[in-house]
Lab assay of single mutants.
Amino acid sequence: TYYTVKSGDTANKIAAQYGVSVANLRSWNGISGDLIFVGQKLIVKKG
C-alpha cells in the first residue's frame, strides 16, 4: 500500500494510523530520520 504524505502528517502519525512501528515505516522507505515531505509517497504495510 502507498500513502501520500499530507500537510501536518508525521512519521509517528502515519505509523499509528496503519498500526505499524515508525522503525518499520522508515525501513520500508529508506528514511533515516523523521523528515518526510508533503506529496511524498510512502510504502506502508498494514500491521
Rank of each mutant, 00 (worst) to 15 (best):
S27K: 14
G47D: 13
L35M: 13
W28R: 00
Y2L: 09
Y2G: 04
G30N: 15
K6G: 06
K6V: 11
G33K: 07
T10K: 04
R26P: 00
R26I: 14
V20S: 03
V20K: 00
Q40Y: 04
I14K: 00
K13A: 12
N12L: 15
Y18Q: 06
Q40A: 07
V38E: 10
Q40G: 03
F37K: 10
R26Y: 14
V5C: 06
T10I: 04
D9P: 01
A11Y: 15
G8T: 06
Q40P: 02
V38M: 07
G33M: 14
T10F: 03
V44G: 01
Y18V: 08
T4M: 09
L25Q: 00
K6R: 11
V44D: 01
S7N: 11
V44N: 01
I36E: 02
I31F: 14
N12D: 15
S7D: 14
Q17G: 06
Y18N: 07
K46L: 15
L35P: 08
V38K: 06
V38N: 05
V5M: 02
Q40N: 05
S7F: 14
L25A: 00
K46S: 11
T1G: 10
I43Q: 08
S7Q: 14
G8Y: 05
I43Y: 08
R26M: 15
I31R: 03
G8S: 06
W28H: 02
T4K: 07
V20T: 08
G30F: 09
S21N: 07
V38D: 06
G47P: 15
N24W: 09
F37Q: 10
A15C: 07
L25T: 00
K45F: 14
K45C: 12
F37E: 10
I31S: 04
N29C: 02
K45P: 07
F37A: 09
W28Q: 03
K45W: 13
G19E: 08
Y3C: 06
S21K: 06
A16F: 10
G47H: 12
T4E: 09
A16M: 12
A15L: 03
K45M: 13
Q40E: 06
S7P: 15
D34H: 08
Y3M: 05
W28V: 03
T10P: 02
A16S: 10
I36T: 04
I14W: 02
G19M: 08
Q17S: 10
R26A: 10
N12E: 15
K46M: 15
T1C: 15
S21A: 07
D34S: 09
I43D: 02
N29R: 02
G47N: 12
A23E: 15
V44I: 14
V20A: 04
Q17M: 15
V38R: 05
L42H: 00
K41E: 10
G30D: 11
L42R: 00
K41A: 08
S21P: 08
L25F: 04
A23H: 10
Q17L: 14
K45V: 11
G19Q: 09
I14V: 08
L42E: 00
K6N: 06
S32M: 12
D9M: 02
K6T: 08
A11R: 02
K41S: 09
Y3I: 08
L25G: 01
V20E: 05
L25K: 00
N12M: 15
I36P: 04
S7T: 13
A23W: 07
N24R: 09
D34E: 10
A16W: 10
K13C: 11
T4V: 14
S32Y: 11
S7R: 11
K46G: 12
I36R: 00
D34Y: 08
V5I: 05
Y3L: 03
I36Y: 05
G39V: 03
V22C: 07
S32R: 11
I31P: 04
G8W: 05
V38S: 06
D34A: 07
Y18R: 02
Y18D: 00
G47E: 13
L35W: 10
I31G: 05
G8A: 05
S7Y: 14
S32W: 10
N24L: 14
R26Q: 11
G39I: 04
V38H: 06
G47W: 12
I43T: 06
K13P: 01
K41Y: 07
V20I: 15
A16G: 08
L35G: 11
G47Q: 13
K6P: 01
N24H: 10
D34T: 08
K41L: 13
A16K: 12
W28C: 04
F37L: 09
A11K: 03
K45L: 12
G8Q: 05
G33A: 09
A15Y: 03
D34F: 08
I43F: 09
G30V: 07
L42P: 01
Q17Y: 13
F37D: 07
G30L: 08
N29G: 02
G39Y: 04
N29I: 02
L35Y: 12
N12C: 15
Y2P: 04
K41R: 14
Y2V: 09
V44A: 02
G30S: 11
W28K: 01
V5K: 01
V20R: 00
S32Q: 14
G39P: 00
A11S: 07
T4W: 11
